[in-house]
């Protein structure tokens, strides 16, 4: 569960190669090779985007086209969305997820950057090194599903939305990335502030945090995506279906095939076909990610996110 897949470490932006200054040895390849590459790249893009585009388009399809199973619909309607919002359960799921995401991201950023700041001066602060090692070690083991469940149970957090926030409050990995950023801030600035009599909290709030906006933005978005995508913990800790986040709702209605209760446009009209309803739930669960993605993406290309895993 603690996959170290997100291999991001902040470093300074690298200088980009310009189109014009290719060295002579980087001559363009032969025409067949270029054509082959173009074909492969178009195929890759289609594989990535077509399924998503298809789902979005089908969620707006008129019933006849949805039932016929067209490759891409041409006539559209909003009935699926109307029906879902009339049903109510999906709205509750979206609201729960929104709450977890907003509250969780704020708390995660606060606690992660606090710990990162505290651990950024391991040489000066006795014991900080030990805490750092203690935190790093957690990246290589995890207690397992059942001990975690028993802990949440004994803390009385079962069936509470807090059980989806508190256990993941600080990601060791994200904390290390913030710490690396803090450590690369100009030391003279902090030393000068210390000599001027500024306390740790003042330096942290007034100097370190404002200078670290880029890394905080990236980590905030990572935390937000993780909270929005919360699925298994909710399955494990939350049995009250009015507290389900959207991912569990999605799993119920799309993968487990449960009917969405009360999903109809008006009482005298037949409800939209199940397939468009399912597609619409998928879209509603995906839209927030698609909305923040351009912001996230800016940081990938500007070179804020690259580097090694080594902490």
């Amino acid at each position: 569960m603690t996959s170290v897949a997100s291999d991001v470490v902040v470093h300074r932006p690298t200088v980009r190669r310009k189109n014009s200054d290719h060295p002579p040895w980087m001559n363009p390849p032969s025409v067949p090779v270029r054509a082959l590459k173009a074909v492969i790249i178009v195929l890759i893009i289609l594989t990535m985007l077509y399924p998503i585009a298809y789902v979005i388009a089908m969620s707006f399809a008129v019933p006849e086209q949805a039932r016929a199973g067209v490759v891409f619909p041409t006539r559209f309607s909003l009935d699926a969305y109307r029906a879902i919002f009339n049903g109510g359960t999906v709205t509750v799921g979206l609201r729960n997820s929104l709450w977890i995401t907003v509250v969780g991201t704020v708390l995660s950023l606060a606690f992660s950057s606090m710990l990162a700041w505290g651990l950024s001066r391991t040489r000066e602060v006795p014991g900080a090194k030990a805490v750092l090692i203690m935190v790093l070690a957690t990246m290589f083991f995890s207690a397992g599903i059942i001990p975690n469940f028993l802990l949440i149970k004994s803390l009385g957090l079962l069936d509470s939305l807090w059980s989806l926030i508190i256990p993941g409050l600080i990601s060791a990995f994200n904390m290390i990335i913030i710490r690396n950023f803090f450590m690369n801030l100009p030391r003279e600035l902090m030393e000068a502030a210390r000599i001027d009599g500024a306390g740790e909290w003042r330096i942290f709030l007034r100097i370190a945090l404002p200078l670290s906006k880029p890394v905080l933005a990236v980590m905030g978005l990572f935390y937000a995506v993780a909270y929005w995508n919360t699925y298994f913990n909710a399955l494990l800790y939350i049995s009250d279906n009015t507290k389900w986040p959207i991912q569990v709702v999605l799993q119920q209605y799309v993968l487990a095939g449960v009917q969405i209760p009360g999903a109809m446009v008006t009482p005298d009209q037949p409800p939209p076909p199940g397939i468009t309803l399912q597609m619409a739930v998928i879209v509603l669960a995906t839209v927030p990610i698609l909305v923040v993605y351009p912001f996230l993406q800016r940081y990938f290309t500007s070179g804020v996110l690259t580097g090694a895993i080594k902490g």
């Binding site: 710990l115 505290g118 000066e124 203690m134 740790e200 909290w201």
Partner: peptide, 27 residues
């Protein structure tokens, strides 16, 4: 001298203690 630094470290350290190390005992 560094007592203020500990106000940054202790909440996070407690978090990892409770949510990463205590569950180990649950094993």
């Amino acid at each position: 001298r560094e007592r203020w630094a500990y106000t940054f470290i202790i909440p996070g350290a407690l978090f990892f203690l409770v949510f990463a190390y205590v569950p180990m005992l649950g094993n």
